[in-house]
């Protein structure tokens, strides 16, 4: 079973040289720590920055320079600032190559629910609806089950949707799964996790073809 950092590490293997990437809050943010050596990836922060750098050193925090998670950050050589309309303009126009975000539920046809639990939690969708409606490639980083042990990979989402038919791939603590027209297709198992366990913890249709390899980091 993977921990949060390992999920991020596995997702980082999907990055390619030249990619512009938007990382959501939570596990997706950790992906920045595992960008493979030798490739250039530019991080987009939807509050208006391309070329997001690491957190500042103590004493160098700048209140005017934050990421979409409201954390203090830095710029890099080649960074650019812009307003929120241009930020979502580049997202809507398909300029961002990869979006990584978290989810509460994903359905077998690629629907995603991530922004609201009716009666309990209403924080808002932020930029998630814009991102999932337009991104060419969306990877969801999530736990396979909720704290009660119930599957979060469903036939149909129960919670209010963030977007429809948009998730392309899921990296969970148990598996790497591709979302196809016919359902979830199992690509890789986390080390020490069996196909049977993944099957048991996936409520939606899981397609298992041939030997399923263990993930390599």
């Amino acid at each position: 079973m993977l921990d949060k950092n390992q999920i991020a590490q596995r997702i980082a293997k999907e990055l390619k040289d030249g990619y512009y990437v938007n990382l959501g809050i939570g596990i997706p943010t950790l992906v920045a720590n595992f960008i493979p050596e030798g490739i250039t990836v530019t991080l987009q922060s939807e509050n208006g920055l391309l070329g997001m750098g690491p957190f500042p050193l103590a004493g160098e925090e700048d209140p005017d320079l934050i990421n979409a998670g409201k954390q203090t950050i830095t710029t890099l050589p080649g960074s650019a600032f812009f307003d929120s309309a241009m930020s979502f303009g580049m997202i809507r126009a398909g300029k961002v190559d990869l979006t990584v975000l978290g989810a509460m539920e994903v359905s077998e046809n690629g629907d995603i629910a991530s922004w609201k639990i009716p009666g309990k939690m209403v924080k808002g969708m932020g930029g998630a609806m814009d991102l999932v409606a337009s991104a060419k490639n969306i990877i969801v980083a999530m736990m396979h089950t909720n704290p009660k042990g119930e599957s979060k990979l469903l036939k149909k989402c129960n919670l209010p949707l963030t977007g429809i038919k948009c998730v392309k791939k899921i990296v969970s603590n148990l598996a790497v799964i591709e979302v196809t027209d016919n359902g979830f297709r199992l690509l890789e198992r986390a080390p020490g996790v069996t196909v049977e366990e993944i099957q048991n913890k996936t409520e939606g249709k899981l397609i298992v073809e041939g030997d399923i390899p263990e993930m390599i980091f």
Partner: peptide, 27 residues
């Protein structure tokens, strides 16, 4: 949605009565 919020402001300043966006379709 955040992009919708931004673009509805932009439309106002650009003198356009409305915009079309895929954000929120099916939700």
């Amino acid at each position: 949605p955040q992009g919708t919020l931004a673009t509805r402001c932009m439309a106002s300043g650009y003198g356009m009565p409305a915009i079309f966006t895929p954000a929120g379709v099916g939700t």
